[in-house]
Nucleic acid binder design. Structure first.
Ligand code: ZN
Ligand code: ZN
Ligand code: ZN
Ligand code: ZN
Lengths: 121, 121
DNA sequence: GTAAACCTTGGAGTACGCTCCAAGGTCCAG
DNA sequence: CTGGACCTTGGAGCGTACTCCAAGGTTTAC
């Protein structure tokens, strides 16, 4: 499919798609008139970009990750090491999020308690 | 304490501290010669910035959050609503992280399986 | 054959979060 | 009173991730 349809399907602008292409994502095949072509696999890549971005990875990190997902070319030891370190990073982020969540929850509880006290006085 | 000592204690550059100050963080008290002063409370703020950043919040989001943490001035209903929405956002991020973690884990398992098969052939 | 709806490139501009000057004031030790 | 280690401001520059625009080629539809 062409860039307009592709962009609509993945929910971003055509400019953004071209930008991702420059970074190194997608199959980069063109028809004779120069128009970019996108496949279902590119849709999966776009979904991975969305996921990665939503959890705070940079486009370059996501690119490296998606290349490890492709595997086959890379040697297994390297790919496994990289995937494992990515998993460790994710675990750290989850732990961080939980810490901040706890902080927010405590503050929320505190705020409610103060409010209740104010109302009872 | 002065900016140099403060920056060292929180582990960032003095430029970064001044930048955070411009954004709106810290107590912004100065001595007569114009030097910035920082307190233990500012250390806590800096820690909050570090946590917030590590989990993908922007400085403005962290600023809003830290102001809600201060509370007292704001009305309770508003503060509670905002804290709750922040907790919901954190929960979404945790869910996203877990999804990507699962993807990575599957790929890792797959990579190991392929490697094992290659060795046995 | 021309209008509309596509596509192309390049380059400029934006917001964020720094980072690095330059030029100069302040403070303290010897 | 001079050197060195602080501090100040302002402004430039940078990497990331877009976003917008101008100028122009292609395709399809009437
Ligand atoms: Zn195609
Ligand atoms: Zn409250
Ligand atoms: Zn002080
Ligand atoms: Zn493998």
């Amino acid at each position: 499919m062409l860039i307009g349809e592709f962009a609509k399907r993945v929910g971003v602008s055509t400019d953004t798609i071209r930008f991702y292409g420059k970074v190194g994502f997608f199959s980069s095949s063109r028809s004779e008139n120069g128009y970019r072509h996108y496949t279902e696999k590119d849709i999966e890549t776009a979904d991975l970009i969305a996921s990665g971005k939503s959890i705070g990875f940079s486009l370059r990190e996501i690119l490296a990750f998606s290349q490890e997902m492709a595997d086959g070319v890379l040697d297994h030891a390297r790919a496994q090491e990289s995937l494992q370190s990515k998993i460790n990073l994710i675990d750290e982020r989850i732990a961080s999020l939980k810490r901040v969540r706890k902080l927010a929850q405590q503050q929320l509880d505190y705020c409610r308690a103060v409010e209740a006290q104010e109302l009872s006085v």
